[in-house]
């Protein structure tokens, strides 16, 4: 667009392109705002940060995509050869200046996104230490963990084929649904009894694989009261899809009340859809291919309810 260009500048072309770029910028901005609606409710301190980054990337991506598609459509409409036109086009082999520009701009762009993402990463700081532990020796034998290392509320998460168990050490409470207090930082200690699992609460925007032979510390702060879904996100075998649990975020008072009430309840079999389906499956003559039998449902104070509506 410089005046030193050898070719005379076509004013209407410049105007048209500028107008179209303006339209695309507006479209991109609108898509960036729309992006928030594609995600579940924001229920943790991580969610606004992740959503902000996603919205930014959506806007940027929309612009790039729309620009590329505009060029393609323009060419397909206006640069078509006539039916009996056998001739070639003007042989332009390349343009070093353009090459430099379209190498440099994406480079700056992606590095910018990377720096933004790294900053979000470090603000989140969800990942605590990851220690190797002896398998099948996770919490029972070691007897919890040193309280001074983890100032937040502590919850042990034990993943199995196919159930989730949540233990509140020091409170003598265990459950197959996860109860948390709003605005109270919580640190999970993730262990698995058998295979890989994924600890994933979409409303919290957080996910961490649970790895046999390791105890992984993982912190977050819920910020919105409600009932959410925890889903197993790393394929764990036959009843992988059914390996879900509810996450309830209460007010501080309700949470304290729940803990108190739960500790008084007797131990009973927790939720395990897999165990139920497995016993039905055993009745069938030709149920399908081989499967590992589910682990027996954990004995917990609070099994919870499997079928209440959730917020996200």
């Amino acid at each position: 667009m410089t005046t030193s260009s050898p070719r005379p500048i076509n004013r209407s072309a410049v105007l048209g392109v500028s107008l179209w770029v303006g339209v695309l910028v507006l479209l991109s901005h609108w898509m960036g705002q729309q992006a928030y609606h594609w995600l579940p409710v924001q229920a943790s301190n991580a969610a606004p940060l992740v959503d902000g980054l996603f919205s930014f990337e959506t806007a940027l991506g929309t612009f790039v995509f729309a620009a590329v598609v505009s060029v393609m459509l323009w060419v397909m409409v206006f640069n078509r050869a006539d039916k009996y036109d056998d001739s070639d086009a003007v042989p332009i082999e390349g343009n070093t200046k353009l090459e430099v520009i379209w190498t440099a701009i994406p480079f700056v762009l992606v590095m910018g996104i990377a720096v933004y993402a790294m900053r979000v990463n470090h603000t989140l700081g969800v990942l605590g230490p990851m220690e190797h532990i002896h398998a099948h020796n996770s919490t029972e034998i070691q007897g919890g963990y040193p309280g001074d290392r983890l100032p937040a509320e502590q919850v042990e998460v034990i993943a199995r084929q196919w159930s989730w168990e949540f233990r509140y050490p020091g409170r003598n409470v265990s459950a197959t649904e996860l109860h948390l207090a709003v605005d109270q930082p919580v640190t999970f200690r993730l262990t698995s009894d058998d295979v890989l699992h994924g600890f994933y609460i979409p409303a919290f925007r957080l996910k961490q694989d649970v790895i046999p032979g390791r105890a992984i510390d993982f912190s977050l702060t819920p910020t919105r009261e409600g009932r959410y879904r925890l889903r197993d996100s790393q394929f764990s075998g036959t009843w992988f899809a059914a390996n879900q649990a509810d996450v309830l975020v209460h007010s501080q008072d309700d949470y304290a009340a729940w803990l108190k009430q739960a500790s008084g309840q007797p131990l009973q079999a927790g939720l395990s859809l897999a165990s139920e389906e497995f016993s039905q499956r055993q009745q069938q003559k030709n149920p399908g291919w081989a499967t590992v039998p589910p682990a027996p449902p954990p004995q917990v104070n609070v099994p919870g309810s499997p079928s209440l509506p959730h917020d996200g």
């Binding site: 992740v50 996603f54 993402a117 790294m118 925007r205």
Partner: peptide, 12 residues
Amino acid sequence: GIMLATVPVDIH
């Protein structure tokens, strides 16, 4: 793909 490359979005 760029969205997937950024860690915070990828985690989700």
